[in-house]
Design a protein around this nucleic acid. Sequence first.
RNA 1: GGGCCGUUAGCUCAGUCGGUAGAGCAUCGGCCUUUUAAGCCGAGGGUCGCAGGUUCGAUCCCUGCACGGCUCACCA
Length: 484
Amino acid sequence: MSSLEEQLFEQRKNKLKEWTVKAENPYWTQFTPRNTAIELQGEYARLEKGTKTDKNVEIAGRIIAERKHGKAGFFDLKDATGSIQIYLRADGLGEKYELLHHLDLGDIIGVKGTVFKTRTGQLSIEARGLYLLAKCLRPLPEKWHGLQDIELRYRQRFLDLLVNPQVKDTFLRRVEIIRATRSYLDEKGFTEVETPMMQLIPGGATARPFMTHHHALNENFYLRIAPELYLKKLVTGGLENIYELNKNFRNEGMDRFHNPEFTMLEVYSAYKTYRDMMNLTTQLVCQVTKQIKGTWKIKYQGQEINLTPPWQCITFQAALEEIGGVKVDLESEEEIRRIAQEKELPVEGLSKAQLLEHLLDRQVVPRIIQPTFIMDYPYETAPLAKRKKDNPSLVERFELFVATQEVANAYSELNNPIEQRERLNKVVKDKTMLDEDFLQALEYGLPPTAGLGVGIDRLVMILTDSPSIRDVILFPQMRPRNPE
RNA sequence: GGGCCGUUAGCUCAGUCGGUAGAGCAUCGGCCUUUUAAGCCGAGGGUCGCAGGUUCGAUCCCUGCACGGCUCACCA
């Protein structure tokens, strides 16, 4: 901490002490505001310039700007709803006026006073009572440019929220998106469930998990990488239309599109297929978008995106060929390997499925801007998906891509326990990581079921025009700062 | 983990072709009772991310490290 920083801190602590001695102790002061900025701004929008009212109001908030003029002055007070100007006069405030120099930008105060409009037309409250409710002991970031330092914005999100108005908008938008998602599913008759975050066997995907230890059980647990297997157990148990909307944890690299903990929606519906899920996905995204944006034509990072249904739908093979310019026989591992090499993709030690996905990720996905379903993947890419009846080398799977990002992934779930065991055996190298409980649930009979996963953070990014996943997660993961 | 880039006052940013740094906001003092990025006068505030090296001299050049951004790898 530099000397200036200490100096500012000390100055403000002294002001706090002075206030406590000469007025009240802020941390014991009771003040419950009866009014909000937005309410007053609305109610008095048409008040004539230069008019006083005898309306008494009580409002609380943070001082975000001050303009003092000797024996009078103005504060801009910001509460949760907006901001309003406070007018302070020596005659109106009496002794308290002398204490004004103990207040700083950032202090949280309560104001009692009357509503009026200045001669320049600014709605204001003339203060008759003024109470310090919490002292801001550190200087706020600059009022005009806000907080620009990206690292500080993520590490001290409270400051980011305080001084960068669009940040709060984004996170309020996020809440709306999640709320709209829930209400869509609830209205469709789905039941929200909660399954374990701590799992003995991390299943449903193959990412590296985070590990933790349960002392009483003396057992290692993993933070879930997906809720999928538990949700299918519930479908077996007769909860046939369910969803879960919560965190997953993956111990992988971090970048603009990946945070170690992220929010996933998974939906399962019995007696449905991936085709039904395609419709559900379209409806869900369209309804949420309409509700949030009021239109299906949105802008993401300068690009026009048109979410008006129906969306383009193309098979995996056709996508490789028509979008990626890669004509390949999906059956021929040699050919796939050769083409991957030609495209300068890593091939060493990679399976056919991995090669195919790399081809898709590299050649196709970066070219997809408009919403596009890619469907009918090679069966090796999805061991939990059901094969196509007329072409068993493919599975009933689709992914939705928007703005070069994967947003959703869905299958007709494989419900044949014998085939499921075989296919998992091929993929899961460590047999203790084979979820026998899940296989047993299938053995009791999982109805034909369709499952869907939607990356909520990515959806929020697109609908809030945010370039990085860290812009839509309140406290994104950061490397701890080394103590000096 | 690799590559590229960044880190200067509390905040937002200049700058030094190598001679220990400036502005605006904020802060402190003075004037000002309808201002609104209030105004005017004055003042204080910096181990230029950290540690080494080269040099008479480094904030600037070199190396290493830390943190961050982008990107590649990883992530069925």
